[in-house]
Design a protein around this nucleic acid. Sequence first.
DNA 1: TTCGAAAATGTCACCGGTGTCAATCCTTAT
DNA 2: ATAAGGATTGACACCGGTGACATTTTCGAA
Lengths: 363, 363
Amino acid sequence: MKHEADPEDALPPSSPQAVGGEAVFRGKATINDVARLAKVSKKTVSRVINESPFVKQKTRDAIKAVIAELGFTPDPQARALARRKSFLIGLVFDNPSPQYVVSIQRGILDALEGTDFQLVLHPCDRAKPDHVARIQSFIQQHKPFGLILPPSVSEDEPLALALNEADVDYVRIASVELDTPSRMIRTLDGDGGAAAGRHLAELGHRHIAHIHGPLSFRSTHERRGGFERALAEASLVLLPEMAVEGGYTFDGGVVAAEQLLAQPAPPKAIFAGNDEMATGAYVAVRRAGFRIPEDISIVGFDDTPIAGRLWPALTTVRLPIREMGSAAATLLLQTAEGMTAKKFITFSPEIVVRGSTAAPSAN
Amino acid sequence: MKHEADPEDALPPSSPQAVGGEAVFRGKATINDVARLAKVSKKTVSRVINESPFVKQKTRDAIKAVIAELGFTPDPQARALARRKSFLIGLVFDNPSPQYVVSIQRGILDALEGTDFQLVLHPCDRAKPDHVARIQSFIQQHKPFGLILPPSVSEDEPLALALNEADVDYVRIASVELDTPSRMIRTLDGDGGAAAGRHLAELGHRHIAHIHGPLSFRSTHERRGGFERALAEASLVLLPEMAVEGGYTFDGGVVAAEQLLAQPAPPKAIFAGNDEMATGAYVAVRRAGFRIPEDISIVGFDDTPIAGRLWPALTTVRLPIREMGSAAATLLLQTAEGMTAKKFITFSPEIVVRGSTAAPSAN
DNA sequence: TTCGAAAATGTCACCGGTGTCAATCCTTAT
DNA sequence: ATAAGGATTGACACCGGTGACATTTTCGAA
């Protein structure tokens, strides 16, 4: 209480429902109420809300006191209208793995907690010819503060181009440097692939196969590239017939593994480009009557929760997906805080050795 | 083109950037532009936008033509400010299963597609004492059009009570009739549990166990209740020591199953209250050296994608989660369209028989 | 033809903030 | 003490709609 009540001036928030004193839920206070009580103009209150440096410390303190007293919170809709910018962060995604999606979401939500920003979901079907237009119209209408694009949406250059035209900030999560410049979360998938290759080579494997993702995904090439590099360092090569596409899906993994096992000299170890396909490989390998890891070792990628739920648990390359989501959101918000935003944040994958890999059987 | 251009009146949208004719991205048209071109007041345009029945057909057509010509879309923020109601649908969730969460999200997004509504995520930790307050403050600030509460948030009566006080619509997804009246998506978990019990009984099982969810979840009781009912119909009983809690989590499932297998007379069949715990049971069962389904049959609940990815694939009780999410959103939006909203929509689970169940071994 | 009620449309303030620019208040250098 | 110039603060229109209520049409009944 820094000021004496002034009967004419210091009325409680506009609503006349002056319940007995300290009611907590009196119809939300507005910036006008704060201004009146603090005896300043609403513009100055606005400045305080927005951390403007041009407010005298004393004034600022007084206003903050009133804000606290009233439990005032600025109205996001009104602010959005006036600024032509909402408090929404859009997650534009098309990733087929639920585990991945949920982890990213959690990460973003972690970072958004305590801020005024909200996470809105915006699925994107890159197969549809109008997918870019849809996102543009979403932006035009809802004026999101920013967007977060995980793979594979992040690799969509036409989209990135359109985004640069449009009036939005965005952060991409991807495994490669992308043509269009923008802030991004970068993962070193090549290193991850290399770790997988090194692990298998060190176990003594020589008959090694790879199930990779769609060729249209940049990560497919990164992971495979690193993998082959590591094999080369161990004087091994990935034979052409030992590399099959599995589309990053469970079913694709099953089919791809079956194809590998049907060959005259089936592999003793398989590196799958993601956990989903590795899980499919489990099924195919067992259907064919082989044991894991005694007969065949399997390595995945991503370390989604399913990896730990398989039996035996899947050796895989871990990507800190949740942290990446969090970092992406933080990067996006930094602009808001006027800080000089770092352009890149890099995450390195690391191999998690569990039960699905072992030295090849004597045979 | 229903009107002749009037040099003074019919200027293109406020922005002076009159590019060569049919530019698509001319700074978004506003309701004022439409009103001017259609030679009516903005209020009448507003009426058309909002499907008010009090507009003459001819006027309506003319305005709609202008709207189409201009590519006008009303500004959600401005509308929200004026109506004190945003176009956000909040998903308040705490469900630990990513599969479940993603499915619900997809369902909601299916229903929201093409509307002006956006889905915002609002995780809720029921363990925190202020979880209700947080949601209240979210509502006060963002004025969501409505909320969707899947289990277990849906079973939180204090929250429902608070929501009734607050100015929000909401739809709950739950397995039981809840105390607080509200619109809801109802699932007949009891029938699902019964289907699981019947299936195992028909296979000839007699030594049957159950891993259930937390006692604080209503679905736990529903599923178990139906299960026991079916067993009773086959003159079987669920022994007290054959019912263990698994917390609806993978780890809980592992521990619970281990406990069951450690007993002097271990079960030949296990019904887990959800797929997550069933997956845990797989691990424990195999660690103990048993085969599925030859030695032990396992049944899950939910039919999340993981069910089909296990080996052997999990026999489970399917709940059409995505459709439920969609139905929940539709129910919420019906108010918007002024239709008489149905209070309840019921979904029946059905058993999906896959590879994890078989007749008990002779033994 | 005339009148009145219902139908259609318009007026105008206001939702709760922010941007622009002018006005006022302090300091510090003469 | 005094003017210059930056630091603070305020005035006011405006963002793009909607609500409440007034006004004007329209049309069948008298």
